[in-house]
């Protein structure tokens, strides 16, 4: 119990696993896999919702609708991870594109591993070109997870 408490406080582990998601979509199977990796590595999970800001707005413009999409998703990830005893340290980041937002994120913080969902059919989320970029530019070990196409996809959690 003590171990669990310490991990919930976020002070018991130092490895950080980033799981970025965008365009209002996070696949549940990918999340489950990220949680399994975090548990195996005794790491903190950092779910990061990447908000795409159109050029006509400043990068720190108040994108209220996007925040409204992001917050329940982050809450859902936090709940799912905390239930498994995994410490969570969520983020929201903005950028012109998902890759721009990711760059801003890892410029500010260190991550030991990045777990990214691959595109699944017509679901929103990362696009193949963005994943290609990620593989050549990410500063940490990167895992791209392809969700099981036979499973139902969850694109928002209320």
């Amino acid at each position: 119990m003590n171990v669990l408490t310490r991990r919930r406080d976020g002070t018991g582990s130092t490895r950080r696993i980033l799981i970025p998601f965008t365009r209002g979509h996070l696949d549940k199977t990918v999340l489950d896999a990220a949680i399994r990796i975090a548990r195996a590595e005794d790491a903190t999970l950092v779910p990061a919702y990447l908000i795409l800001v159109p050029l006509e707005f400043a990068l720190d413009a108040q994108m209220s609708q996007e925040f409204e999409r992001a917050i329940p998703l982050l809450e859902a990830v936090e709940t799912a991870a905390s239930r498994e005893g995994i410490p969570v340290d969520a983020r929201i980041e903005t950028g012109r594109t998902p890759t721009h937002a990711l760059e801003r994120l890892w410029d500010a913080e260190h991550f030991d591993r990045i777990v990214v969902p691959a595109p699944a059919g017509r679901e929103p989320g990362f696009r193949p070109k963005e994943l290609e970029w990620l593989l050549t530019h990410a500063p940490s070990e990167t895992v791209i997870l392809r969700p099981d196409p036979t499973l139902r996809l969850v694109d928002s959690v209320s």
Partner: peptide, 17 residues
């Protein structure tokens, strides 16, 4: 300065909205 404060800020923001 703890991870749980991110959640406090998010919840507070939603209520403020």
């Amino acid at each position: 300065p703890q991870p749980k404060s991110q959640r406090i800020l998010r919840r507070a923001w939603r209520s403020a909205q």
